[in-house]
Nucleic acid binder design. Structure first.
Lengths: 244, 244
DNA sequence: CAGTGGTCTAGACCACGCT
DNA sequence: GCGTGGTCTAGACCACTGT
């Protein structure tokens, strides 16, 4: 590679470096979830660039949901609030069209296990690494509709007590208790047939069709933090995707 | 509503008006799919605003996939090309992880029908309006994997000849032959059990689980142009969603 | 090398929310 | 009224592409 090609490839706009610098400060905890960032001009002074460049970085961070901005108020580090989670990470809607919000969660089981080959692969761990396995169900108006298996690398959640109860919104809990902010995820959606386990958990008849949604979720810093399998009663809920 | 409140609510940034103005020119056909738009400075002169404002409008139009920009070359009206369609409107992936591209389509039936209550409702038509119904299947390496029912308001496709053959990518065809550019869509995903029709079309055993994806697609100008039901062999394909 | 989009800066002014 | 983000402008310069 010639020097010219190097400099071509090495070019990175200033606003992207600023974006990374701000992200790093958030990851480092300099500004926590919900905290207000310095104003555009203060950040510009702090980082020795113009206000316009800071603005472009903050627009990008708003886009990727790292911060949010309110005119007349300020720029804040995003939180995994319930409202935000519904919008970004919960795309199930009732088939009848009535919005019932986030179904309530009920813990069935939680235990520390050794990663099976499948789980290790999905979480990019080594077989046998410690993994926290959570089984719970979600109910809509007392009727079970989703069975969730959730796998967490034990490494990131060393403080988690197996005997504690869990809140309805885990992502908020990860953030509050473990300083892990879920920021990106990928869902794979398949159709499956309900088995005996599904029957026991969410009272669907074996043979009924279910959506199986497997999710790999990443934290702000890009670390793979959660693997989740949701089995969803298709007679109650569907998965909605907006494309453009 | 007081005058003050009126003026508050009436405020609309200049760049949004510019965005709309450019969109309107594209809808009107002043610039067609693939055409190069005037440069930022030319547009600024044309619309009597600064280059920076034009830039902001074009950035928004890039975001919503109305235009695309290539540094050093120009700004172009987006086309429903195969590559673009795969990226924006085809989110099925092979379960084995191997990317096989867009499965080839095979026409089974095409006819002009009167809208049933369900179809009329989904396409926001009146019961009995003329609707073109297309049935086709998609194959991956000669193996059927998706059965598609497609419903088009006859009104938008008056030139369509029932006896013509159809290309693999309908969206490109809508654009080329009917000046209809698909720009937005919403997919509803459910799990269903294969029936006799599915068995006949895509050779799955009755009782097997399928994904049923119903899509309502809109043109650039916001008109509802297509209602599509895809029944997908879940043993071959899954639906992938990226969240952030 | 000419022409295009992309970056960066500086400054003025507007809209908004809070107090 | 003050401080914040949002809009709009003007201008300089950089990076990329095609001829």
């Amino acid at each position: 590679m010639t020097p010219k090609e190097q400099s071509r490839n090495a070019f990175k706009p200033l606003y992207q470096k600023i974006e990374q610098a701000i992200t790093n400060k958030i990851i480092a905890g300099e500004w926590g979830p919900g905290d207000m960032l310095p104003s555009e001009f203060q950040l510009a002074d702090l980082l020795s660039v113009s206000q316009g460049t800071v603005r472009k970085a903050l627009e990008a961070l708003t886009q990727s949901n790292v911060v949010y901005r309110r005119q007349g108020v300020g720029t804040f580090v995003s939180e995994n609030t319930l409202k935000d989670m519904l919008f970004h990470f919960f795309h199930y809607k009732a088939n009848d069209g009535v919005d019932k919000g986030l179904p309530s969660a009920e813990l069935i089981d939680i235990e520390l296990i050794d990663a099976s080959p499948e789980i290790a692969s999905e979480l990019e761990l080594t077989r046998g690494d410690g993994v926290i396995k959570i089984i719970r169900i979600r109910k809509l108006a007392d009727k079970p509709c989703i069975a969730e298996q959730i796998y967490l690398p034990q490494h990131f959640f060393t403080q988690l007590d197996i005997n504690d109860s869990l809140p309805n919104s885990l992502y908020h809990y990860y953030q509050e208790s473990f300083n892990i902010t879920i920021n990106k995820a990928a869902d794979k959606i398949r159709a499956v047939i309900a088995n005996e386990s599904d029957q026991a958990l969410i009272k669907v008849r074996p043979g009924n069709p279910l959506l199986e949604v497997t999710r790999r979720a990443r934290a702000l810093d890009g670390r793979l933090v959660e693997y989740r399998i949701s089995r969803v009663d298709s007679e109650q809920l569907h998965y909605l995707v907006d494309l453009n």
